[in-house]
């Protein structure tokens, strides 16, 4: 353990911490690693944000290991055992109106939730980023036209716009995802445009331009990276809203189709029994709540970590 690597700049275990917290990075990769490590430490120190991180991590693990965690098939019915209370007959969280095990359904439902969140979190910001940076960078009539488009979509009530899209595309999980993405992008476009306006006349952008770089190259290669941190924060904070919108669509019967164990649809089915068999609606309600809280805690923490204005104070 005494011989230090001679050529490689990858350190040994003991030096790892020092290497990661170095304030004089030796390479671009090293700098990224340091930046990431510092962020991670800040996250770790922010107890609430870290809790949020753990919640999201559990959700991901739950989705991956669903077959191991579930005690029954998520759609296996047993009418004789319908509405069994939690803890009875080995049903950890009870059974629903068709005698299906709620715990198993929740576990499998996490895959749907993750699928929705994953796709929306990728498509909406990218689309918003594209529109926003192009508008901000080019300015003029392109900006005018694109921003009018953003205004039009912003002026719609979100759930109603999603409803309209779902109704147009036909009910189903795929339509729900597309609809939510379509309603979620305008705020990102606005943020990206605002950020772009502040940097488009910066010296280094002009330098790149003088070197003869193309418009798209500048936007994607040099403007996007600078917008990322504010977008990421916003995405994390929006995740909760996306889950709730998906649940709202499920609640109105326009999200995932039965018997898929989508959490919002589960609440919707369970509300009929809310007075006497509270667990049918409350368990998925709790699940939605915990996951949204996780995303919110994480997003809130990330804002503190990534927002440079904040870290100065």
């Amino acid at each position: 353990m005494t011989t230090a690597p001679v050529k490689s700049n990858v350190p040994d275990r003991a030096g790892l911490k020092a290497w990661l917290s170095s304030d004089a990075p030796t390479s671009r990769g090293h700098a990224r690693a340091v930046q990431f490590y510092m962020g991670w430490m800040k996250l770790y120190e922010n107890k609430l944000a870290f809790l949020g991180f753990l919640i999201i991590l559990s959700l991901v693990l739950m989705a991956i290991f669903a077959p191991l965690l579930a005690t029954t098939e998520p759609n296996a019915q047993d009418l004789a055992k319908r509405l069994t209370a939690p803890g009875v007959d080995g049903h950890l969280l009870g059974t629903d109106e068709l005698g299906r095990d709620i715990w198993s359904r929740l576990v499998y439902g996490s895959r749907i939730t993750l699928l929705i969140v994953g796709i929306v979190a990728f498509t909406a910001p990218v689309f918003g980023l594209l529109i926003g940076t192009v508008a901000g960078y080019l300015g003029g009539w392109v900006d005018q036209a694109l921003m009018r488009l953003v205004d039009i979509f912003l002026a719609f009530p979100k759930l109603i716009l999603a409803l309209a899209f779902v109704a147009a595309l036909g009910a189903g999980i795929e339509s729900a995802i597309i609809a939510i993405s379509l309603t979620a992008w305008p705020p990102y476009a606005r943020i990206a445009r605002a950020e772009t306006l502040t940097i488009r006349n910066a010296d280094y952008i002009s330098a790149v331009r003088l070197q003869g770089a193309g418009v798209m190259h500048i936007i994607i290669g040099h403007v996007w990276p600078l917008c990322l941190s504010s977008i990421i924060v916003r995405v994390t904070l929006d995740m909760a809203g996306i889950i709730l919108t998906a649940a709202g669509l499920g609640f109105l019967g326009l999200g995932a189709q039965p018997p898929e164990p989508e959490w919002g649809a589960m609440i919707s089915a369970g509300r009929k029994f809310i007075l006497d068999h509270w667990w049918v609606a409350a368990m998925p309600g709790m699940a939605i709540f915990i996951v949204s809280l996780g995303f919110n805690l994480l997003g809130d923490g990330l804002r503190d970590i990534l927002d440079p204005k904040k870290s100065q104070s």
Partner: peptide, 9 residues
């Protein structure tokens, strides 16, 4: 929808 799910089963 409940009937449909029972039938499906």
């Amino acid at each position: 929808v409940e009937i449909a799910q029972s039938l499906q089963n």
